[in-house]
Design a protein around this nucleic acid. Structure first.
Lengths: 405, 405
DNA sequence: GTACGTTTGTTCGTAAGCTTTACTAACGAA
DNA sequence: TTCGTTAGTAAAGCTTACGAACAAACGTAC
């Protein structure tokens, strides 16, 4: 009976991609979308392979067409064809023959044309000013420009941001691949700032405005969601980035894709209440919000309130930072547990975060989650300091325009 | 200057799929994988479109080839070609001409051959017994079989499960599309049970064992992760399912894809500590774990301890359930906030969960998250009761084998 | 120095897959 | 009967990737 069943099954069913045929080869593919949602044409496949070639070159550096073919699994013929297109478009250049001596025909090295395009990145998340930079394809910052915000909101703030982009575009003679913007607040995938109270923006079509003004591809996302892209470029795991500044926000990448959330408000953890014992009153009216514990200005104010002359000032400062870290750990523990995260990154003022606070967060996470499951959890400070949003904006443009990161 | 820049850019760059060319058309595609990881061949595209046709029929029911073409965006020619293949494989059948009178040639209705295959689903998560069922493609349960576990662990438990599958396979004469298993513990994507303390399993290659034994496609995943598939079949949003039974676990679908976690332990929230005021001692040694508050046996025991004769027994019961619900809300709040979830589903004993506990969880979530961002959050009981894991197992097989759900 | 093997990148022909165009079949409406 | 509409199919063409074969260019063994 069972043999009959399996015979019919084997005849009637063609296995889907990713799951080989035959006994024991069928696996549940976790990366496959559950439901196909739109058709795929050959040109889409080609675009994917095009990005794949660029990706290999981007991460592994100059190499021959044959090398790329081996790494991608495509044939040399196909790679040559794709590369020919990409050279014609100016995205790839030939660098000359490989130097080292090997048997066989010498290889012609190719690479992404790293000088062919620049990227404009802008960070609107700082409270006091907008910052921006011209960035090359490798994420190096080539030129900077800032503008003091001076409390500007609404259209005035938009004008400041637009002008900042204009000034940055004037700083380069190289074609610009695109403009990436990290904005505070809730930003939808079409680049509409749904709500950014600090800037007085609501339903502002920032992407459309800038795209029309400058005639360039524009990508806009929440600042923390942008920042996590910069961090993700270095690793491949699921990643949570907590950005602590004037407010507290997070960016999240799961399975290689940014999490946006049902209302495009993923990562908005600043007003989640921490613990069951009250806490400082928050601007939102609640008590014990994460932001009330952890926002940089509030934390700094609490530290400043301590009289340096007092005999135990140092230990009080330490206790304050430690408590803030503990509160962060309390909020993160359920998230780390539910998502089984292996990597959490902190981003913000180093003098506040990197020390007692960081330690306390680690300790709290350890004691409040199942050690067995989260054994290899890493909690670390970002190494990108001030420029993380700018670099993330560049990654966002690279990813959106070339499918590379 | 800027005009020059944009001209070169427009010439040199071909927009990637999903982002149209030209001003304002470029969007940041949130569903695109950041980095292409493997090549895509035409046959992969065809398989995708094949699944797309099946998906449309599966969800929308019998219709003509032309209807499918309109809904998928593929041409009638391509749909006819795909359908011809699928009919040859026995996955689609022609049902005869459409009855209603319309101008033009009458349509030949086609549908997924819903009687051609059955699915075997098994739930290993109950403490006292293993349950299983033969399920049709629409998720209807056609036959059941159970086996008392009687404390069996290790190889004995494996033998019980294997025998249960064998008995289920004997209950149907229809070809079996595949076997789906929901197991407690941590299960990796290859169907290896990395760790299931209750069953005494560690690194047990359950998928491989069953596939070899029965010569059928087998899919294994954690019980809560399986259950959430059943729930997801009804909606399309991000979804968190909390499964409360002997333990407490969760399953999570984000962006249409199950979250697995870095150690394949996503959803293991049972041993996250809740609140900052201690709590009952847990089997794991910590105090105030979610499981210590909420696991069905412990909750029931606390309720049973109340003397029914006592004057205020009812209100004490209520307080206990309410407190448990509050604890659940406290743990979920950071997760809901970080992921901006719109839908959370509870699954477990209705008499415990659906009442004061549920209400308290909703209240707690409301007061501990930002109402503005999570306005449309729904927290509800599952409607699938006992069979959710069995139905989820069927969805897992459907999804894995046909790309349909 | 010559023959041989190796590696690169290209050319040519082929197979797969989807589209456009054009057709036939079958129906209702005027 | 004629006209317009809809379903499904057939033929041709375009895109895309592949395999086979080849020439170029190199090291090495003898």
């Amino acid at each position: 009976m069972t043999t009959q069943v399996q015979r019919s099954q084997a005849d009637g069913f063609r296995p889907s991609p990713g799951s080989g045929a035959g006994v024991g080869a069928t696996i549940y593919p976790p990366t496959r979308a559950l439901r196909p949602t739109s058709k795929v044409l050959p040109e889409h496949a080609r675009n994917h392979n095009r990005s794949l070639v660029l990706q290999v070159l981007y991460t592994s550096g100059p190499q021959s067409r044959a090398d790329v073919a081996r790494e991608t699994g495509l044939t040399r013929v196909t790679v040559s064809d794709l590369v020919a297109d990409l050279i014609a478009e100016g995205l790839i250049v030939e660098l000359g023959q490989r130097a080292d001596a090997r048997p066989g025909k010498p290889a012609m090295l190719i690479d992404i044309h790293r000088d062919a395009f620049h990227i404009v990145g802008v960070d609107l998340s700082e409270h006091r000013r907008f910052t921006g930079a011209v960035i090359d394809l490798d994420g190096r910052i080539l030129a900077r420009a800032d503008v003091e915000r001076d409390g500007a909101t609404g259209d005035a703030a938009l004008a400041l941001a637009t002008d900042l982009v204009r000034r940055l575009l004037e700083r380069t003679d190289t074609p610009v691949l695109g403009i990436g913007i990290g904005s505070p607040g809730v930003v939808d995938p079409l680049g509409v700032v749904r709500s950014a109270p600090n800037l007085g923006w609501s339903d502002l079509a920032l992407q459309a405005h800038l795209a029309e003004t400058f005639g360039l591809p524009v990508h806009v996302a929440n600042d923390a969601n942008v920042a996590v892209l910069a961090e993700h470029a270095a690793s491949d795991d699921d990643l949570l980035l907590v950005k602590i500044g004037h407010g507290v926000g997070a960016g999240l990448i799961i399975g290689g894709r940014p999490v946006v959330g049902s209302g495009f408000a993923a990562g908005e953890i600043g007003h989640v209440v921490v613990g069951t014992d009250g806490g400082p009153r928050c601007a939102c009216g609640k008590h014990g919000c994460l932001e009330a514990w952890l926002a940089a200005p509030r934390l700094a104010a609490r530290l400043d309130a301590i009289d340096d002359a007092a005999p135990d000032a140092a230990s009080v400062r330490d206790a304050i930072l430690r408590e803030a870290g503990r509160r962060l750990g309390i909020v993160l523990a359920p998230v780390v547990g539910a998502l089984n995260l292996s990597e959490v990154v902190l981003c913000g003022p180093t003098h506040l975060l990197d020390g007692a606070l960081h330690e306390a967060t680690v300790d709290t996470l350890r004691t409040r989650t199942m050690a067995e499951h989260n054994r290899d959890l890493r909690l670390r400070m970002t190494e990108q300091a001030e420029d993380i949003v700018l670099r993330g904006a560049a990654v966002m443009v690279l990813s959106g325009q070339l499918g590379v990161s």
